[in-house]
Design a protein around this nucleic acid. Structure first.
Length: 288
DNA sequence: GCGCAGGGGGTCG
DNA sequence: CGACCCCCTGCG
């Protein structure tokens, strides 16, 4: 396929590090020139800040401008969202200042489900390694710039993997979970097309929770980071628990508030933008 | 340098 | 509430 390029003017709500290292994605890597290269669906893209421009370049199966607009959530008004959230309170305002270039990606639902099942009780370098190995083994090769990249396997492709194959690729105890979830989705016992049309995030979450390896935290991540884009969920992990306890209760590292309590506090404070608030807080706590 | 504990974006039984 | 796989990190 031919290489395509798309150039747009720089905007304050688009910052490479903030987007790719706020914890929503695992397949974007920094290059020596500070640009990032990543694979999503059957696309390989490099994104570079060049003076006053943002330059997208790479292999795209469809029109690159449309692809970029959708994937980088460019139709959503992040300035407006930040304006609303800044008014909530001072701590959140500060974290927004820090992560003002964050955007939430519209990632493929299937890929996001499997990726976040793999993320459970795991660390980021290892998660990335596992996903790369799965893609190389079962995905489709894409060549660009003399390099080989691999798309994340489709459900049909990944269904070829046996439990022991997954174990060999380093998934550990998550092998069985990925295997079973793949089968359920392939048989349409959980129909992702139907799920994508569902509006009520409570219903969506209930359905996601029926998948092996998907608990409350993973479900929230899937809903927030995929094309489902439920901005009202509030994934609570160790970092978010820490930051919430510190900010609002001034409690020591060891969290006193339970997951459910934090979740309801967040929804009370941040309302239907809780998911964005989570990202600003998470990124601030981890990076600062 | 190498070897060894400690812990990690939770989920499940 | 404890176990779970395995790699990465940090310390001795």
């Amino acid at each position: 396929m031919e290489e395509q390029t798309y150039i747009m003017k720089k905007i304050p709500t688009f910052e490479l590090k903030a987007i790719f290292e706020c914890g929503q994605c695992f397949r974007w890597n920094e290059e020596e020139d500070k640009s990032y290269t990543g694979v999503f669906k059957n696309n390989v893209l490099n994104v570079k800040i060049d003076g006053e421009n943002i330059v997208f370049k790479g292999i795209c199966e469809n029109d690159i401008k449309e692809t970029v607009n959708k994937y980088f959530d460019l139709e959503r008004d992040y300035e407006k969202i930040k304006e609303t959230l800044r008014k909530v309170d001072e701590p959140l305002k500060n974290s927004i200042e820090y992560g003002s270039g964050i955007r939430l990606l519209n990632q493929d639902l299937w890929e996001t489900i499997i990726s976040f099942i793999i993320s459970a009780n795991n660390n980021i370098p290892r998660i990335k390694g596992i996903i790369e190995r799965i893609s190389k083994e079962y995905g489709t090769e894409i060549k660009w710039n003399g390099k080989k990249y691999y798309s994340f396997p489709t459900k049909e492709q990944l269904a070829k993997a046996k439990v022991e194959d997954l174990r060999r690729l380093g998934l550990g105890f998550r092998d069985e979970r990925v295997y079973q979830t793949t089968k359920l989705i392939l048989n349409k016992e959980v129909d992702l097309d139907k799920l994508s049309k569902e509006k009520d995030s409570k219903v969506i979450k209930e359905i996601l929770l029926t998948l092996p390896g998907v608990g409350p935290k993973v479900a929230d991540c899937i809903m927030l980071f995929s094309t489902l884009k439920c901005l009202d969920v509030f994934p609570v992990d160790v970092w978010v628990r820490r930051v919430m306890n510190e900010l609002y209760f001034n409690l020591p590292e060891e969290s006193k508030l339970k997951r459910e309590q934090i979740e309801s506090l967040a929804k009370e404070k941040y309302g239907n933008l809780a998911g964005l608030a989570q990202q600003y807080l998470f990124y601030w706590k981890r990076e600062a």
